[in-house]
Nucleic acid binder design. Sequence first.
DNA 1: TATGTATTAGCACTTGGTACTAACACCAGT
DNA 2: ACTGGTGTTAGTACCAAGTGCTAATACATA
Lengths: 197, 197
Amino acid sequence: MKRRTKKERQQHLLQTIEENPFITDEQLATQFNVSVQTIRLDRMELSIPELRERIKDVAAKNLENEVKSLPLDEVIGEIVDIELDTRAISIFDVREEHVFQRNGIARGHHLFAQANSLAVAVINDELALTVRANVLFAKPVKAGDRVITKATVSGQNIEKNRTYIEVTSTVNNSVVFKGEFEMYRTKGKGESDETSY
Amino acid sequence: MKRRTKKERQQHLLQTIEENPFITDEQLATQFNVSVQTIRLDRMELSIPELRERIKDVAAKNLENEVKSLPLDEVIGEIVDIELDTRAISIFDVREEHVFQRNGIARGHHLFAQANSLAVAVINDELALTVRANVLFAKPVKAGDRVITKATVSGQNIEKNRTYIEVTSTVNNSVVFKGEFEMYRTKGKGESDETSY
DNA sequence: TATGTATTAGCACTTGGTACTAACACCAGT
DNA sequence: ACTGGTGTTAGTACCAAGTGCTAATACATA
């Protein structure tokens, strides 16, 4: 059926292309029962690029994402200062994708992930694993907040290959998260590799 | 400079296109100092599709990824069974992107995320936040492992709006992770909303 | 010298467009 | 009844980045 007005059709057009950027003008023309030229005029008015450009945009976004998601898998948050086996600081900007849609509060595991990543990073060893963690989520964190996390090595047990780390996260100097991490490592602080595995 | 052999050039071609799928035959021809036709023949022999197809492929992959990465932000692991305010079970397949490159062991925060997600999900409330967690990483988890996580509500403190949850994760019936979660919620188990916030 | 492989050139054709011109339909205002 | 504006359609020339095909040329090797 013919859409009543031009506006209605254009509204629909925007939505259709948003959902499926791979659609050609000809397919759109058939779908809306208008000529290909009308679709072209519509696209121009709405400044929607042609099929190939649309696809290229989607593809380009993909390459961006690859760059973005990789470090996200490696270390959560950006390490800004580190003194191996002593302390480390990282920054994590909370964005929309990290919070509950319902109330805008950051999901706990993102804060945990930042702390855990930092605890792993501060240990000067090839193999560092989290054995145990006691964490406290002191205050809700919202999208837009910049979380600054400090990890400090607080102790060691060389016989058990353990390192203890205290982690504190703050937003605007107010503590939002605290954690104690017990980490396993193959080698003691500053040791070379004669230590038994 | 001209590449010595056809094979060398084709090897290089594969690599170049892999790195930058947005390159045209003409650009490739200039780069390798051969004619456009030669590049076309090479692509045919190597069954490399034309520029537009390559871009389309990248874009299509992107749309797939969007669908994949969204639920990952919402809940880590797939919930297979749930009885609200009582217990819940989820499954999480550990893949390459979840493990340390160096030793193939899953990063702790992914296991924590699965447990935390499940603890939030089991609570029958609009607002559920993690207040505190004590977790133990009992055994390393590797890529390919299927982690089965069970969350059980173990207690409540109605005055303090707290719910306590025990979480256990196993791989092949062997415990790999245990956690106690203290959760904040606005309403008590089964209550309606007259409770104070 | 003949043969095979690699390379290059040229032409017709394809898709999915842009850019532009022209025609027509219809509705409102004067 | 004529004019004007908006919306729609048709048609043409052109473009990028190809495919598919034929033909010519170079070069080495048997």
